[in-house]
Computed example of a mutant assay.
Amino acid sequence: MSRTVALVGLMGAGKSTVGRRLADKLGREFYDSDSEIEKAAGLSITDIFALHGEEDFRRGEQQVLKRLLEQPPHVLATGGGAYLNAETRELMRDNAVTIWLNADLETLWRRVQKRDTRPLLRRPDAKDVLTSLLAEREPIYSQADLVVPSKDGPHINTVNAIYKALQTWTPK
């Protein structure tokens, strides 16, 4: 596989955790776009949202993803909203194989409650927000090249499912 493997999906889908393990299995570098954005901005994602708003964050995210997608093939965990941008989706289509880590609402909810660093969920109606985000984003995530379920259990199961799917994937 001579392309970057870009993991997309909602927060809590396991993109960073699975991505690190997949990179090890493939013998590639791993990049987490949120970590790269934080390095570039010198601020946490939460602070970027608070100080500059989501729109500015998304602009910076797109610049960071463009830079990352110009690197030699690697594994890339993207932020939950990155794939929503049509230009970013096109850039990923041209430079990567995209994989939607598809998790159900209850799995996502259990996972996102473990950390309070999710700016979009810092509200009393967080589960309702997550429900809405999932419904709104699923049609876009479904445009990914491959769809792999992300379930509770050992992450190696998801890594192995991605690895197997990559063996038979061919560019469109």
Results as ranks from 00 to 15, higher is better:
residue 12 G to K: 03
residue 74 H to Y: 08
residue 153 G to P: 04
residue 28 R to M: 12
residue 117 T to W: 05
residue 39 K to S: 12
residue 10 L to K: 04
residue 95 N to M: 02
residue 156 I to F: 06
residue 91 L to D: 09
residue 79 G to K: 00
residue 56 D to M: 01
residue 145 D to P: 01
residue 68 L to C: 03
residue 82 A to R: 02
residue 72 P to M: 11
residue 89 R to C: 06
residue 98 T to I: 05
residue 67 R to L: 07
residue 103 A to R: 04
residue 91 L to G: 05
residue 70 E to S: 15
residue 55 E to L: 02
residue 113 Q to G: 15
residue 11 M to D: 06
residue 111 R to D: 13
residue 116 D to E: 14
residue 97 V to N: 08
residue 69 L to K: 02
residue 162 I to N: 07
residue 52 H to M: 04
residue 141 Y to T: 07
residue 77 A to L: 09
residue 159 V to I: 10
residue 77 A to K: 00
residue 98 T to P: 10
residue 126 A to Q: 09
residue 38 E to F: 03
residue 68 L to P: 00
residue 126 A to N: 06
residue 73 P to Q: 09
residue 85 N to S: 12
residue 31 Y to N: 00
residue 160 N to F: 01
residue 55 E to K: 00
residue 120 L to Q: 06
residue 28 R to Y: 14
residue 113 Q to H: 12
residue 157 N to T: 11
residue 91 L to I: 00
residue 20 R to H: 14
residue 163 Y to P: 04
residue 162 I to F: 10
residue 77 A to R: 01
residue 81 G to N: 01
residue 43 L to E: 02
residue 6 A to F: 00
residue 46 T to W: 01
residue 139 P to D: 11
residue 97 V to R: 08
residue 124 P to H: 13
residue 169 W to N: 08
residue 167 Q to Y: 06
residue 125 D to P: 05
residue 159 V to G: 11
residue 4 T to R: 07
residue 107 T to F: 02
residue 107 T to C: 10
residue 82 A to I: 01
residue 54 E to K: 02
residue 25 K to H: 12
residue 121 L to I: 07
residue 32 D to W: 10
residue 71 Q to V: 02
residue 81 G to H: 01
residue 30 F to G: 06
residue 30 F to V: 07
residue 144 A to E: 07
residue 51 L to F: 02
residue 154 P to Y: 00
residue 112 V to Y: 02
residue 93 R to K: 13
residue 169 W to K: 04
residue 168 T to C: 11
residue 112 V to P: 02
residue 24 D to P: 01
residue 143 Q to Y: 01
residue 3 R to Q: 14
